[in-house]
C-alpha cells in the first residue's frame, strides 16, 4: 500500500518535472548545425584527407623515402621513386588507397620531410571505387591547408655529382 502511494506521488509530482526540462528546450536555441550549409571548423590537428606539401620554390617536399608506407598500419600507401632533372629523388608514383586508410595519422608523424599531412577535408564520398585510389597529382594541388607551421623550412639540397646545379 505504501509503495503504491509512493508511486502515485512520484507519478503526480515528480514525473512532470521531467516534462518541464523538455519544455524548457522549446525556448532555447538549437545546438545542432545546419550541416550542408554551415560547417564546423575542424581542429588544427584534425586528420582528414591527405595532401602533399611543396617548398616555397615549388619543389615537392616528398623524397619518396617510404617511411610513411612503412608506418602505415593498413598498408594503404604505395610509391615508386624517380629522379628529377636535378638528380634529386622524388616520387614517381605515390598512391594512397583511401578505402584502406584508417586515418590514424602515422604517415604524417613518420614523415621526416614534413611532406604529407592529413588535411581538414572530410567529405570525399564518391560513386566509383577506383576514384578512391588517391594519386600524387591529386594530392599535390593546393588544398585547404592545415594550420601547421613547418618545423623545418629550409630545403636540404643534396649535391649530386655529374649533375649541374641549375641555380
Amino acid at each position: 500500500m505504501k509503495d503504491i502511494l509512493k508511486a502515485i506521488g512520484r507519478a503526480v509530482f515528480k514525473t512532470p518535472l521531467g516534462f518541464l526540462v523538455t519544455l524548457k528546450y522549446i525556448f532555447k536555441k538549437p545546438v545542432t548545425l545546419d550541416y550542408p550549409r554551415k560547417k564546423k571548423p575542424m581542429a588544427p590537428r584534425y586528420r582528414g584527407k591527405h595532401y602533399l606539401e611543396r617548398y616555397d620554390d615549388g619543389t615537392e617536399r616528398c623524397v619518396c623515402c617510404g617511411l610513411c608506407a612503412a608506418a602505415c598500419p593498413a598498408d594503404a600507401i604505395y610509391m615508386e621513386p624517380e629522379e628529377n632533372e636535378n638528380g634529386e629523388r622524388r616520387a614517381k608514383i605515390y598512391e594512397i588507397n583511401l578505402l584502406r586508410c584508417i586515418f590514424c595519422g602515422f604517415c604524417e608523424e613518420a614523415c621526416p620531410e614534413e611532406a604529407i599531412f592529413l588535411g581538414q577535408e572530410y567529405e570525399f564520398s564518391n560513386y566509383d571505387r577506383n576514384s578512391f585510389i588517391y594519386t600524387k597529382d591529386e594530392m599535390l594541388v593546393p588544398h585547404p591547408r592545415k594550420d601547421n607551421p613547418f618545423k623545418r623550412i629550409i630545403r636540404r639540397v643534396r649535391r649530386v655529382y655529374g649533375v649541374e646545379d641549375t641555380k
Binding site: 575542424m42 581542429a43 590537428r45 584534425y46
Partner: peptide, 18 residues
C-alpha cells in the same frame, strides 16, 4: 560532443583517437 571536441583537439580524430 564537448568531449569529442577535446579528443579532436588532442589527437585529431573524434572517435579513433590513437
Amino acid at each position: 560532443e564537448m568531449i569529442l571536441d577535446i579528443y579532436e583537439a588532442c589527437g585529431g580524430q573524434r572517435m579513433m583517437t590513437s
